[in-house]
Simulated scan of single mutants.
Amino acid sequence: MTTVVLADDEALLRSALAALLPMEGEITVLAEAEEGGSAVEATLLHRPDVLVIDLEMPGVDGLDAVARIRRELPEQVILMLTRHARPGVLRRALKLGVQGFVSKSAEPAHIATVVGTLHEGRRWIDPDVSALAVIDDCPLTDREIDVLQETGEGYSVAEIAARLHLAQGTVRNYLSSAMQKTQTRTRHEAARYAREHDWL
């Protein structure tokens, strides 16, 4: 029997999966969550075999929730449901150690099969998700993406340096390079440009 926590802000989809997954496989749904914060709480409380979480949710989104869970439960197995497999987002999810990606339009039977696959220690990325992910025209390096991500969260150069364990001059260099590549005048414009192009 595989235990699961389900996190999705779409109540209809979440309740449908909660009802159908146990019928499709040896799956027990321990808890449901409708946003990222409660997904973190439910996962830390129940410690399921697999967390099935929507990428885009209000408040704390799926990636932020996964990052918080990873700090407490580094071995947690995670299946991410996504409608928009943007390259930058997928790259962040993979860096966070997400083991599986499935389209939200997938049949419950398929999702149940993937849950079982992940529980066995394997990985799964739906072909339609991976096809979108490889169309990656991002010119930014991983470090430039990191500093723009922090900029987008509202942190100062000094705070970014402390959070990423870098020298302030190094952070400024990364930001300057990112601004050149995005042809923007400020780091905040660069972060906005990168987000609009799905690089963050």
Rank of each mutant, 00 (worst) to 15 (best):
E10G: 07
L17A: 00
L20T: 02
G25R: 07
T28Q: 14
V29Q: 05
A31W: 00
E32I: 00
E32P: 05
A33N: 00
S38M: 12
A39V: 09
V40W: 07
L44R: 05
L45N: 13
H46D: 05
V50D: 01
L51P: 05
L55S: 10
D61G: 05
G62M: 02
L63R: 03
D64F: 06
A65Y: 08
R70F: 12
R70M: 12
R70C: 08
E72L: 11
E72R: 14
L73S: 05
E75I: 06
E75V: 09
Q76Y: 08
R83T: 15
L90R: 08
L90Q: 05
R92S: 09
K95H: 13
L96F: 08
L96M: 11
L96V: 10
G97M: 12
V98G: 04
V98K: 04
V102Q: 04
V102A: 10
V102Y: 02
A106V: 04
V114D: 01
V114W: 01
G116L: 04
L118V: 09
L118W: 01
L118Y: 03
R123D: 14
R123N: 13
I125Y: 03
D126R: 04
D128F: 08
V129N: 04
V129Y: 05
S130V: 15
L132H: 15
A133D: 01
V134Y: 11
C138F: 07
C138N: 12
L140P: 03
L140I: 08
T141W: 09
R143F: 11
E144D: 08
D146G: 04
D146K: 01
E150P: 04
E150H: 10
G152I: 05
A158W: 02
A158Y: 04
A161P: 06
R163V: 09
L164W: 01
L166Y: 12
L166M: 15
A167T: 14
A167H: 15
A167G: 15
Q168H: 11
G169Y: 13
V171P: 03
Y174V: 01
S176V: 09
Q180C: 09
R187V: 05
R187E: 12
A190Y: 04
A194Y: 02
E196H: 07
H197I: 04
L200V: 01
